[in-house]
Simulated scan of single mutants.
Amino acid sequence: MNSYDTIVIGAGAAGLSAALVLGRARRRILVLDGGPPRNAPAAHVNGYLGIDGLSPLELLDVGRTQVEKLGIEIRAEAATLVETVDDGFVVDAGDERLHAKRLVLAAGITDALPDIPGVAEGFGVDIFHCPYCHGYEVAGQRLAVVATQPMSAHQVRMVRQWTDDLVFFTNDTIELDAAERRLFAARGVDVVDGPVSQIVRRDGALQGVRAGGAMHEVAAVFVAPTMVLNLEAFAGLDLGMTDTPMGPVVATDPMGATNVPGLWAAGNVADAGSQVIAAAAQGARVGAMINGSLVEEDWAAAAQPSS
């Protein structure tokens, strides 16, 4: 069985950052790349000091090159099964069983988009979920928030920071009482009740939102997808979870360790709201923590009497 000091499951910013730190510590590392990152549809990574505006795929290409220069192997395979064994973990990937002393869970999340025609075609282009990521680029224009879950009311409060021309479509999802409507009106937010039937697009460009039989022209739309953790391979482990307003995430201590000994988690799978810069920082921290645990294990083994 091919054995590694650490297998990193996920090749986004969190996973590659963990691999970079561990590779620089001269550990034998394997990274399993299960597919495109969550932010692949976006044109730019924003809010990341030093690389603001870089394409997310270009960022990962640069990261992969830097990691591979350290002799780290990256495979275009997803982990399909993770099991614990006495000396670590076994991981099924492709047609091979792999062994690792430690694991990094950085598989991220998948955005399950609302079932509204037009959303999927424009997601990451002019339909967004995070104003910190994309608000600046559309600031000052007429923007829309389409309710898809209870958190959408909070999303309205956030998006209002980037424009004073905002319309909120309740979409038969949120009921606003009289006090809330007065507050929205005081902040200059228009409210449109009733279901949204379509996000109207023409020739690849957003035209507006159709609701109640009327067409409302807007420059960009914000929605709140349902975030699904990519944990299929970990179903056999009794991973601790934490409930958050954005949904459940893998529970970790402040250093990224989970309740499963030897398994650390970083990125959106453990912090659904983290942007790319935060995910990368979490991955770097986890890499250092794992190397520290391996250092202590090496010294403990050396302290044992020779047989």
Rank of each mutant, 00 (worst) to 15 (best):
V119S: 02
E96H: 12
P117C: 09
A120E: 12
A93T: 09
A100N: 06
L98P: 00
D95R: 13
A100S: 13
P114G: 05
L105P: 04
A106I: 06
A106G: 11
H99E: 13
G118Q: 05
D115G: 05
V104N: 07
D95P: 05
G122W: 02
G108L: 08
L105H: 04
E96I: 11
I116K: 02
T110M: 13
D92A: 15
A106P: 08
L105N: 03
E121G: 06
L105E: 02
G108F: 04
D115L: 11
G94V: 09
F123L: 06
G108D: 08
D92T: 13
P114H: 05
L105T: 05
G122M: 10
F123G: 00
A120P: 03
R97L: 12
A112S: 13
E121Y: 10
L113V: 05
V119D: 01
P114K: 04
A112Q: 12
K101W: 07
A112C: 09
A100C: 11
L113M: 12
E96S: 13
L105D: 00
T110I: 12
G118E: 01
E96M: 11
K101V: 08
E121T: 13
A100G: 10
V104H: 08
D95E: 15
A120F: 00
G108W: 03
T110G: 13
G122Y: 00
A107W: 00
K101Y: 06
G94T: 11
I109F: 08
E96G: 06
H99C: 10
G122H: 03
A120Y: 00
V119K: 02
D115I: 10
G108I: 04
R97V: 14
T110F: 11
V104I: 13
A120V: 05
G118A: 07
D92P: 00
A106M: 10
V119R: 00
A100W: 03
K101P: 00
K101D: 13
G94W: 07
L113G: 12
L103V: 02
E96F: 04
A107L: 03
I109T: 14
P114I: 01
V119T: 02
A100K: 05
G118N: 04
R97T: 15
H99V: 12
D95S: 15
F123Q: 00
V104F: 10
D95I: 07
D115S: 14
E96T: 15
P117W: 10
V104R: 07
T110H: 14
D111I: 10
I116M: 04
D95W: 05
I109G: 03
K101I: 04
E96K: 12
V91P: 01
K101A: 15
V91K: 03
H99Q: 14
R102F: 02
D115Y: 09
H99T: 12
L105S: 02
E96R: 13
T110P: 08
A107S: 15
L113Y: 06
I109H: 07
A112M: 11
A106W: 04
V119P: 01
P117G: 09
T110S: 15
